[in-house]
């Protein structure tokens, strides 16, 4: 269903949020581990910028469209500006803020998906 892009976009966003959630979990659980560097994902906008929307071929003579290459985002170390003496750079308050963000965004994406699905259904019925 790549002709309608919203589905794919929403699922990429969900994927990004889930991955970020697991990174936050790793940061929080290693909040007291010496030498642990906190990790985070690049913002979703940069992930989106690397993804092109593929054109749909409507005639066999058309050049086959290259599928949108979705590269999964790679986690990177956060800047260790607030690293403690033990070399741990986890800021637990910051992580809790990010956790809240992730939860809210997941809520939003799910609400959009639900409404979109209702739209599809009302078109079918």
């Amino acid at each position: 269903m790549s002709a309608i892009y919203l589905d794919e976009l929403a699922s990429q966003r969900t994927q990004w949020l889930n991955l970020r959630q697991s990174l936050i979990a790793a940061n929080v659980s290693n909040a007291n581990t010496p030498g642990f560097a906190a990790k985070d994902l690049p913002p979703f906008a940069t992930v989106l910028a690397r993804t092109q929307i593929a054109m749909t071929a409507t005639d066999p003579g058309h050049i086959a469209p290259t599928p949108a290459d979705y590269a999964p985002p790679q986690p990177a170390d956060e800047d260790g500006a607030n690293a403690t003496l033990s070399g741990n750079s986890v800021n637990i308050e910051g992580e809790m803020t990010k956790l809240g963000e992730t939860g809210r965004d997941a809520n939003t994406v799910n609400a959009i998906k639900k409404i979109y699905h209702q739209m599809m259904l009302s078109a079918l019925k």
Partner: peptide, 27 residues
């Protein structure tokens, strides 16, 4: 405090899973 933070993460992860499941439920 760290225990609480971990608990919060676990709660929210479970919550996010439930949300996705409830998408299927209501469809």
């Amino acid at each position: 405090r760290t225990y609480e933070a971990n608990l919060q993460v676990a709660k929210q992860s479970a919550d996010m899973m439930n949300q996705t499941v409830s998408l299927l439920k209501e469809a």
